[in-house]
Computed example of a mutant assay.
Amino acid sequence: MEEIDKLIKSTEYQNVILKVSKNKKILDNYYDSLLKIAKRNLEISDVKLEYLEELLKNDEKSLIYSFVKMGLIIDNQEEEFSKGEEPSNDEKMVTINNLGKSITFLIDDLIEYYLLKNSQKELENYLKAIRIPNAKKYAQELKEVYDSIK
């Protein structure tokens, strides 16, 4: 987690956050928990932190991707799971009000961008693994964003 913390506090990351987020509120409440989630997402994606650092420094399209994605409004109502993988009633989706963007949102965007650029087949599996509602639909929307900036 120390490496993720270092990335988040880096000048490059902070500058991109400022550029991409414009009028969106950036939340760093529960910072340690956000770091744990970012670490978990990196592990699930099997994307190395060094790859994200390289994208951040050398791939301007990753920034454009994040900026374009920030404008997306995705209406996900239900989660989709394979037969036998359905969550219990206690684990089903709840509606959460959006109070802003997490300080780690850029890490999530960079993971998605990396998978779109290098392994699109893995994107949907990754989204399902981190429990994104309607992962298949969301993956398709992300592909459309990616295709629009190629």
Rank of each mutant, 00 (worst) to 15 (best):
E53Q: 12
E85S: 15
E43L: 13
S148K: 03
E85P: 07
L142Q: 08
I73H: 09
P133Y: 02
Y13A: 03
E60S: 14
I111T: 00
K36F: 11
K57V: 11
I111A: 00
G100N: 11
L56K: 04
K36S: 12
K36H: 11
N98H: 07
N23L: 13
Q120N: 08
S21L: 09
L56T: 05
A135G: 04
E50H: 04
G84F: 05
N29T: 15
D5K: 14
I74F: 08
I44K: 11
D108L: 01
K25F: 14
Y138C: 03
L7N: 02
E141A: 13
L116A: 01
T95N: 05
E2S: 10
A135Y: 15
V16Y: 03
S66F: 02
L110Y: 06
Y126Q: 04
E141Q: 11
E43W: 07
S148E: 04
L27M: 13
L49R: 03
E112K: 13
G71R: 05
K136F: 09
V94F: 03
L52T: 01
G100Q: 09
L35W: 04
I107N: 05
L72R: 07
E86Q: 15
E3T: 07
K150E: 04
L52W: 00
Y138P: 00
N125E: 12
S148A: 10
L7K: 00
T11G: 01
L116C: 10
L110A: 00
I132N: 03
G84T: 06
N118L: 02
A129C: 07
